[in-house]
């Protein structure tokens, strides 16, 4: 197990490095730079700035400098705000992860329950109703859904504030719903399919033949097997959802990671782009590792090494 973990972590570092390398050179290949849009920069000021941030050096040298700083966990400062990047990132991540964490939790719980219900009532009205809504939420783009939520709950019904500066819980309700809608729908469909598959297996018949109650047949014998495919999906989903959604964060005006990422790209804020990329890559790799380990926990047939 520990040998496996070490191997996976080394591989993870390698893949993060490759992502970093590609991003760095791609970012620099795009014409323009961080100080292009500034007004009234004299060539002299610009030259000082360029030198200050090593932007006058060849790209490969910049890359080496960046890596050297990175090994000391120095992400640099934002070219736009001048603030420490690590500080900005952790603030943004805290916001995104809070909303995303709740949304992921809601998605898994509701998705599994609805999926199981749909499987048990196959081809009857609960199944049809659930599948209708999951299709709807899978098909509807999040910006449409998020805007719709705002319109109905904030403007027409007036139940929730459109925008609030205080940290009240009601502020998070709609973003969580908007974020959770797609993964909930997806997990529901996944659970239904794998539950139907599990219920038709021979071991279900064996369990019934032992005299196991219907409830236990479903929740002990079928559900655990049905969850195996769901787990594979949950890992990457967590990575996406924790790191914030650009659309949802913009519509609800939440200063999370997704919004930060896009802003840093439009600003050509090189260190910020790099830091965000590394952060997203690390989270993605970690969540994949986590889902592989979870896989092993649920299914004893899986050998990790």
């Amino acid at each position: 197990m520990s040998k496996y973990l070490i191997k996976r972590i080394l591989l993870a570092i390698l893949s993060v490095f490759v992502i970093l390398l590609i991003t760095f050179f791609a970012m620099n290949a795009v014409p323009g730079g961080p100080f292009n849009s500034e007004k009234a920069t004299t060539p002299a000021v610009r030259a000082v700035l360029m030198e200050r941030f090593n932007l006058d050096k060849p790209v490969w040298q910049q890359f080496l400098i960046y890596i050297r700083n990175l090994t000391r966990f120095d992400f640099g400062v934002s070219l736009k705000t001048g603030r420490e990047i690590s500080g900005t990132l952790s603030t943004c991540f805290a916001v995104s992860a809070k909303i995303g964490g709740i949304a992921a939790f809601v998605a898994v719980i509701i998705g599994v329950i609805l999926g199981a219900i749909a499987a048990l009532f196959r081809n009857r009205w609960p199944d049809r109703l659930i599948i209708f809504f999951t299709t709807l939420f899978t098909a509807m783009p999040s910006f449409v859904f998020a805007t719709l939520l705002l319109m109905v709950f904030c403007i027409q019904l007036g139940l929730l504030p459109v925008f609030s500066t205080e940290a009240s819980a009601s502020k998070y309700v709609l973003p969580v719903i908007a974020l959770a809608a797609y993964p909930t729908a997806y997990i529901t469909r996944l659970t239904k399919t794998s539950m139907l598959d599990a219920l038709s297996q021979d071991y279900i018949r064996t369990a019934r033949a032992k005299g196991v109650t219907t409830r236990k047949v479903i929740f002990k014998h079928a559900l655990r097997n049905a969850l195996i495919p769901v787990i594979t999906y949950v890992g990457p989903m967590l990575a996406y959802i924790l790191t914030g959604s650009l659309v949802v964060e913009n519509i609800f005006n939440i200063g999370g990671l997704g919004k930060q990422f896009v802003q840093s790209i439009t600003n050509r804020d090189y260190p910020m782009i790099m830091a965000t990329t590394i952060f997203l890559a690390v989270i993605m790799v970690l969540m994949n590792l986590l889902s592989d380990i979870m896989y092993k926990v649920v299914d004893p047939r899986i050998k990790l090494d």
Binding site: Q201, D202, Y203, T206, K210, H221, N225, P300, R301
Partner: peptide, 21 residues
């Protein structure tokens, strides 16, 4: 009745046991 009065074993022992328990 099942399992206590009357039990059954099946054709394929490879698939008749639950793989996760």
């Amino acid at each position: 009745f099942r399992g206590k009065k009357c039990s059954i074993i099946f054709q394929d022992p490879m698939t008749s046991l639950n793989p996760v328990y």
